[in-house]
């Protein structure tokens, strides 16, 4: 009897040990898989810095960042990327000015007013919009937007900053709408009830209680939209004309992203290194946006 019990205990202990070893192995595997992401980020950062610095040194920090001319294949090449930086900034700002009001009001409508089938249908459409590849946006932009701008504004070429802004505004809608809806849905019903019980109308309640309570989440949605817009390459390349002009609404322009994408295939030497430097500048912008986004997300977490 006692032997049986001892045998059982020993067996049980061995089983436990085995379980523990297996547990540890699985933990290890998960950790390694998780580290792949971290390693990728680290590698990209390090590589971009290493690859991006030499050209900036050679060309000169200020000449590179604030030079107004880009003529990478001229006999006397000039590498000034101010046109790209400003185009990216203006393009993103324009997309935000155009896209945020539309996205914000759509989110309020879907979260607070629309019910049942209406909300379902519209949310499905928003999700679909998010899933459309950017080359398709570009294509539709080329076929519809560019000729449209040419005809409406009587400009020689519709491929312009304006076309890029409109395309970007549409492309950032899904992120703005979805993140804003999540934030607005999370506003406790009690707040809204309290407001209604004080005699406020539903619309007053949404804009004076629900939206302020969700403001961090909505801010995060906007920052996410900024990130999406500044990082977009394909669609804007197809509708913006891709000429390194200083930005102007009806002129062909080139973004940071498209500058890299359009020349990389045939570049060499200093030109190629300069393209890496452009990527580094873009990367810096993205980092800035991420830090901002994290700030708002944390704030949202604290408020909830």
């Amino acid at each position: 009897m006692a032997n049986k019990a001892t045998a059982f205990l020993i067996g049980w202990r061995i089983e436990m040990k085995k379980t523990k070893i297996i547990e540890n192995i699985i933990h290890g595997i998960f950790l390694i898989l998780g580290l792949i992401t971290v390693a990728s980020v680290l590698l990209i950062t390090i590589y971009l810095v290493i690859a991006g610095i030499p050209a900036i040194r050679e060309i000169g920090f200020f000449k590179f960042l604030f030079g107004k001319n880009w003529a990478s294949t001229a006999a006397e090449p000039v590498f000034g990327i101010l046109p790209f930086i400003l185009t990216s900034v203006y393009g993103t700002a324009g997309a935000i000015v155009l896209g945020v009001p539309i996205g914000f009001f759509t989110a309020v409508y879907l979260s607070k007013i629309a019910t049942g089938k209406m909300r379902e249908t519209m949310e499905a459409a928003v999700s679909l919009l998010a899933g459309i590849p950017s080359v398709v946006y570009g294509l539709v932009g080329m076929l519809v937007l560019v000729p449209g701008i040419r005809k409406i504004f009587h400009v020689p070429d519709g491929a312009s900053l304006l076309a890029a802004i409109i395309i970007l505004a549409i492309m950032i809608l899904p992120s703005i709408i979805k993140v804003s809806i999540t934030a607005l849905d999370a506003v406790p019903k009690e707040y809204e009830e309290a407001s209604l019980a004080l005699g406020a109308t539903p619309i007053e309640t949404y804009f004076r209680v629900s939206v302020p309570a969700a403001k961090s989440g909505i801010a995060a949605a906007v920052v996410l939209g900024v990130g999406r817009a500044i990082g977009e390459a394909m669609a804007v390349m197809m509708v913006s004309g891709n000429v390194p002009n200083m930005p102007s609404l009806f002129q062909s322009v080139r973004f940071l992203t498209t500058a890299v994408a359009s020349e990389m295939a045939y570049s060499s030497g200093l030109q190629q290194q300069a393209l890496f430097s452009i990527a580094l500048v873009l990367f810096f912008f993205i980092m800035l946006i991420n830090v901002t986004l994290n700030f708002f997300m944390k704030k949202e977490g604290k408020e909830a």
Partner: peptide, 11 residues
């Protein structure tokens, strides 16, 4: 006017 079960001041 109304006062609710759970105190619900606005944030």
């Amino acid at each position: 006017g109304m006062v609710f079960q759970k105190p619900n001041p606005f944030p």
